[in-house]
Simulated scan of single mutants.
Amino acid sequence: MGLSRVCLFLAHAAFFVLLGNAAGSHSLLYNMTVLSRDGFVQSRFFAEGFLDRQTFLHYDHKKGRAEPWGRWAEKLAAETWETESTDLNESSKELRKLLAEILSLQEEKGGLHSLQETVGCNIDEDSHPRGFRLLYFNGELLLSCYPEPHGCTLPQSSARTLAMEMELSKHYQAYVQGELCWRLQSYLESWTGFTERTVPPAVNVTHSQDSEGMVHLTCKAFGFFPRNISVVWFRDEEPMSRDAQESGDVLPDGNGTYYTWETIRIPQGEEQRVKCIVEHSGNHSAHLIPLEPIRLQDLDQFQTEPTDHNGLTHPEFQSLCHTPAPSV
């Protein structure tokens, strides 16, 4: 099988769309992946954990341990990380064993193959916990487990590949619907208070000039919580149109806060006619940002790309394929 057909279903944003996080709802999610090359299952194991769409855990393959990610996670007890590490190491063994079994039934074993498991629990506004488990082989849905009356289902084309539906259903009920939903409720005891905090944004403005003599101004806000924020460029005391601004998404930065940016392109000499106003819902105040020159090489502290968690954004890893959208 060529690389173009091997999809590592790692863009957790797709699951966030599936799960959602409406007011009053919460979610705990683990995303795990193992690989094989030319018929041999690799030892490398990729895993991340997300609580209410925020990364709180990443798996260190070299140490064979789950490591905390972000300020909330770093305050959890050592026993918590022993439990997380034990569970992930066990999942790693099970996934590698399952991938080897799947490969034994494949006519074409060459090339690169992936098996991904996504497990977790949702607590909706009705406060009822609902566990879920999804398995993907080469990016195609192999197994889906949801609370009764759905249970675990296999696509018709996968029935020959996995003759263990009952065993997987038992695992789903005991571990996913039981242990993980209990863990989510336990984590929420300290997480809820943590997410009710307010952290105002740090803001800076940078500018650069292109070959056509136009000036690019970027207003960056980072390190803020909660997520709601307004970043708008003004020209002559009037807000510029959205078409004149290049907007960045509001993204998690991996430590429990968010970052975003807005960029405009104006003729040189008009810098003093514009300013950036940042209003954050947490402190309900407007930030007027002076246009002071800042060298781009001094901005290493600010990330304009998502953090590389556990090597998942490494070019060698990401170049394998495009992420499919979940068909659930």
Rank of each mutant, 00 (worst) to 15 (best):
W182M: 03
G213F: 08
P149H: 08
E212A: 15
Y175L: 14
M166R: 15
S169G: 07
H128N: 04
T198P: 02
S211M: 12
T206N: 10
L180S: 06
W191T: 09
H150N: 10
M164K: 07
S208H: 00
L154D: 08
L184R: 06
H216D: 03
D124F: 13
G178Q: 10
C145G: 14
G131L: 12
L184P: 10
T161Y: 10
A202V: 06
G193Y: 00
P201V: 00
T206E: 04
A159G: 04
M166C: 01
L168D: 03
Y175I: 15
L135W: 12
I123G: 00
G139Q: 05
W182Y: 04
Q156W: 12
Y187I: 05
M166D: 14
E189D: 09
P155A: 03
R197I: 07
E125M: 12
P200Y: 12
F194Q: 11
P129T: 03
E212M: 13
G131R: 05
C152I: 03
C181H: 07
E212W: 10
T218C: 15
P200F: 01
R197S: 15
E189N: 10
P149Y: 05
Y172T: 04
G120N: 03
S211Y: 02
P200S: 11
E125T: 15
W182D: 12
G120I: 08
R183M: 09
D210Q: 01
V199L: 14
N138S: 07
L135I: 02
H207R: 13
W191S: 09
P147I: 05
D126T: 09
F137R: 03
H128M: 02
K220P: 00
C181M: 12
E125S: 15
G178W: 01
S127L: 05
L143I: 02
R130M: 14
S158R: 03
N138R: 05
V215D: 04
P155G: 05
T195H: 12
E212T: 15
T218G: 09
Q185Y: 02
E125K: 15
G213Y: 08
L217N: 06
Y146Q: 15
P201C: 07
T192Y: 02
C181Q: 04
T195D: 08
R160S: 14
L180C: 03
G151A: 05
G213M: 07
E140D: 14
E165C: 04
Y175G: 01
L134N: 09
S157E: 14
L162P: 02
G131W: 02
D210M: 03
N122W: 09
V205N: 14
G178K: 06
Q173I: 10
K170I: 00
S208A: 13
A159I: 04
M164S: 13
T192C: 01
T198V: 15
K220L: 13
F137N: 01
R183V: 00
P149N: 00
P201W: 08
A221T: 07
V176Y: 06
H150K: 14
Q173R: 11
G151P: 11
A163M: 11
E179V: 09
H171T: 06
E165T: 02
C145Y: 11
G131F: 06
P201A: 10
G120S: 11
D126R: 11
N138M: 03
S157V: 08
E148T: 07
D210N: 10
A174H: 07
L184T: 03
G131I: 03
P147Q: 09
